[in-house]
């Protein structure tokens, strides 16, 4: 029994090391490339330099505040967009002619990258938080509403008939039937749009240069590129990627685990 346990643990360790190996190879190559001068340091600082810079900037520099600023704008943008999306969805449910019109417009708008709209956004909203929120809205609303409307269309009729049969009130229908039934679509939609919103936000911050007080992560990257500090630029990029990973693990993974348990996860 103990021998079998030991063997299982050994297998787990081997599997873990096999998965870790490619990362270790990349880290080693990167460090050598920079330290041995294969690639100039100003283009590719060593990982150890970047790591040191990252922690220094997070705890004693401005990087933490830049991160918070970007996140706050993102959350504000997403909150507004979810409300706007809800209004659009309700209007589509209520008025079929509006639904057809809206889906046509949304499909067209969805194919326009945020950066292509930047000149118009600057004209209408100036350069600042409202412009970034406008870009985030463009990244979120069209896609998210289409996900939900498609989900509503494919809601199993049997759930609605069950709700009809017992004369379920609207609030209970929405809370107990529609939202859980639409959760796969909501989650899939959110997963796509949050990434797009995050990328649009960072892109806008870089394009705008500097916005107001401590700018966000895009501003941080831009200003350090201006000053030629690539270690800080990499630090900013790592934080951007880390946020993406954390959101995926902390938020979406948990919801998906639940949906897997229910058997409603779209895979």
């Amino acid at each position: 029994m103990k021998a079998r346990q030991r063997k299982q643990n050994k297998n787990k360790l081997v599997t873990f090391l096999k998965r870790l190996a490619p990362f270790l190879v990349i880290i080693a190559l990167w460090e050598c490339a920079s330290r041995l001068g294969w690639v100039p340091k100003f283009i590719l600082p060593s990982l150890s330099t970047i790591t040191g810079t990252l922690f220094r900037e997070l705890f004693t520099g401005t990087l933490f505040f830049n991160l918070i600023r970007s996140l706050l704008i993102l959350i504000a943008g997403l909150a507004i967009d979810l409300v706007v999306s809800l209004i659009i969805i309700l209007a589509c449910i209520k008025f079929q002619s509006f639904k057809y019109f809206y889906k046509t417009v949304a499909t067209m708008m969805n194919s326009i990258p945020s950066m292509a709209l930047l000149p118009l956004i600057i004209m209408w909203f100036g350069i600042g938080d409202s412009a970034i929120i406008a870009l985030v809205t463009h990244s979120v609303v069209w896609t998210f509403t289409i996900y939900i409307l498609d989900g509503i269309n494919s809601l199993p009729k049997i759930y609605q008939e069950f709700a009809d049969n017992i004369n379920l009130d609207l609030k209970s229908r929405i809370k107990d039937i529609y939202i859980p039934a639409l959760l796969p679509n909501i989650t899939a939609g959110l997963k796509v749009v949050w990434g797009r919103a995050w990328r649009s936000l960072i892109g806008a911050e870089v394009a705008f240069g500097a916005i107001g007080a401590a700018g966000g992560l895009g501003y941080y990257i831009n200003i350090n590129r201006y000053n030629g500090d690539m270690a800080k630029v990499f630090s900013g990029i790592i934080i951007i990627a880390a946020v993406g990973l954390i959101v995926d693990l902390a938020v979406f993974s948990n919801i998906e685990k639940k949906m897997k348990k229910w058997g409603t996860l779209h895979e």
Binding site: M123, G126, A213
Partner: peptide, 22 residues
């Protein structure tokens, strides 16, 4: 002046914004 009050822009952005009273 605080950082809040200062906007660093390129030439064209700067001209656009002052022209639009932003």
């Amino acid at each position: 002046l605080t950082d809040d009050q200062l906007l660093s822009l390129n030439e064209q952005q700067l001209i656009d914004l002052i022209a639009q009273d932003q």
